[in-house]
Design a protein around this nucleic acid. Structure first.
Length: 479
RNA sequence: GCUUCUUUAGCUCAGUUGGUUAGAGCAUCUGACUGUUAAUCAGAGGGUCCCUGGUUCGAGCCCAGGAAGGAGCGCCA
């Protein structure tokens, strides 16, 4: 008989049928009730053993964490905790798990701290929490592809190894096949990268944006969705050295079009998760509520996980300019009471405390801040007519901070070349990028979304290391 | 990179002014019970008190250095 996934057993109408399910034992209570999970859903199926008439040796091997196949009849449950259960006719042990060993792992049947679970990232998939997180991570990933595909975007694969270091997005990891102990040297004593694999110095990508622009200026609308690397020594709950980024780029879009696209996109993902991940969301929602109860009242978030997703789905984001944001901050209570650690004045880069004030206190909703001072933004952002600001936008989410950063790109060749000079970027390095401004240049815009930050928002997890299977952070590349 | 907190049983933690044999809950094992839902009841086993050095008659506790982890900040997505 072919195995049926537990998700299909629970959603189907197979009562009375003989079935086979396979999975891992989560609990075996009273020598009678086996809770089996196969990853297809957060729910377990209960299998009821008539142990008085069953081979004792086999039952002894049904331990927590072991993999078994159950053959039996699906019936309506006599107990109150579940609608359906399996009357066991036969148990086959597929893979044993010894309790003494299991006890040392995260499969030990009790609540664990997220830190302990992180130390056993290879086994944490077996827990309810991480099962839910990674099913939702998949759903978000699929929703992103579906959103763009349904709107006629093309998925563009930009390179992971790149020779361009002009993005200015951060420190990069060098890629080389040279002997680190004895590299070839040039006459002046530097490493001679002309003898390296690519004949030049190359790095892991920090952004696919510049290449995505090249695609957009022919295909019209494209997006990238791939791994991204930053060698920054960032030790926070919001940064990874290896993360996934989504970067759409659209020809003929201006900043307002860009904001509209961003809002549609974020709302779509929120809606997709709400309608397709009900069980996992309900579990994470309850988990968060329990955790909130142990916190002091002033630290609790006002909305639950599900309410936050509904809020994003149902409400327009607040849109303000950088200049307005500064005005709000200057009129704010914490500013007047001298509670900000960093000073507020036009021209500063907004600090976390400022962004948090605007999102969590002033507006209590996602906020899009636009038109930042040119001096604190990247060279490719389009200069506004005032000469001081650029057509940039940052989307700020409560609890997460900057989730999206984007801009209208500078399409005017002369302005862009002047910007390169201002930022000390040699034109020779970006000849291919500048070429697009020579041949039928058009206004265009795009944004970058940190995938893991979106998954944090969708799951309510507060540490980014808990939404990627195997996190890469400074001093940690285990598994 | 900076600030700060933490490190004691498999896990989460308590451990008094420096004093004899380091505790609890959960988990595990054994037994009892058997329609359980974090099952229940009884019993048992389980310790490099993060590491190195120092002070002291005596250190889980005090001092110095180091390591690992968390939170916050900076950089950013």
């Amino acid at each position: 008989m072919k195995r049926i996934k537990i998700a299909d057993v629970l959603s189907g109408s197979l009562v009375g049928d003989p079935i086979v399910v396979k999975g891992w034992v989560r609990a075996f209570r009273a020598n009678r009730f086996i809770q089996l999970n196969d990853g297809s859903t957060i729910k377990n199926i209960q299998a009821v053993v008539d142990f008085e008439n069953f081979d004792e040796h086999t039952l002894k091997r049904v331990t927590i964490g072991s993999a078994i196949a159950i053959t039996g009849k699906l019936v309506e449950s006599q107990g109150s905790g579940q609608a359906l259960e399996i009357q066991v006719e036969r148990i086959d042990i597929i893979g044993e798990a010894h309790p003494d060993d299991i006890q040392k792992t995260v499969m030990q049947p009790k609540r664990h701290s997220l830190e302990f679970l992180r130390e056993q990232a290879h086994l944490r998939f077996r827990t309810n929490t991480f099962g839910a997180v990674f099913r939702i991570r998949h759903a978000v990933s699929y929703a992103i592809h579906k959103f763009f595909n349904d709107r006629g975007f093309y998925y563009l694969h930009t390179p992971i190894i790149t020779g361009s270091d002009a993005e200015g997005a951060g420190e990069m990891f060098r890629v080389s096949t040279l002997d680190p102990k004895n590299p070839p040297l040039t006459d002046d004593g530097n490493v001679d990268y002309s003898q390296d694999f690519f004949g030049k110095q190359v790095n892991l990508t920090v952004s696919g944006q510049l290449e995505a622009e090249l695609g957009a200026l022919a295909l019209g609308q494209v997006y990238t969705f791939g791994p991204t690397f930053r060698a920054e020594n960032s030790n926070t709950s919001r940064h990874l050295a290896e993360f996934w980024m989504i970067e759409p780029e659209v020809a003929f879009n201006d900043l307002t079009d860009n904001m509209d696209l961003t809002e549609d996109f974020l709302r779509y993902i929120a809606d997709y998760v709400l309608t397709n991940c009900e069980d996992d969301l309900a579990f994470l929602n309850e988990r968060e509520q329990k955790e909130q109860q142990s916190k002091p009242k002033n630290e609790r978030s006002e909305l639950s996980l599900i309410e936050r997703l509904e809020f994003v789905r149902d409400n327009a984001f607040k849109r303000i300019t950088y200049t307005e944001a500064i005005d709000y901050l200057l009129r704010s209570r914490p500013y007047k009471k001298n509670q900000f650690k960093f000073d507020v004045q036009w021209g500063i880069d907004l600090q976390s405390e400022h962004e948090r004030y605007l999102v969590e206190r002033e507006f209590q909703s996602p906020v899009i801040i636009t038109d930042y001072p040119a001096s604190i933004k990247a060279f490719y952002m389009r200069q506004n007519d005032d000469g001081k600001t650029v057509a940039a936008m940052d989307v700020l989410f409560p609890g997460i901070g900057e989730i999206v950063g984007g801009s209208q790109r500078e399409e005017r060749l002369d302005v862009l070349k002047a910007k390169c000079a201002d930022f000390d970027i040699p034109e020779e390095e970006l000849w291919w990028y500048l070429d697009t401004r020579r041949f039928g240049t058009v206004p265009h815009a795009g944004f970058g979304l940190g995938f893991e930050r979106m998954v944090m928002f969708a799951t309510g997890m507060t540490n980014i290391r808990d939404v990627i299977p195997f996190p890469r952070t400074p001093q940690n590349a285990e598994f």
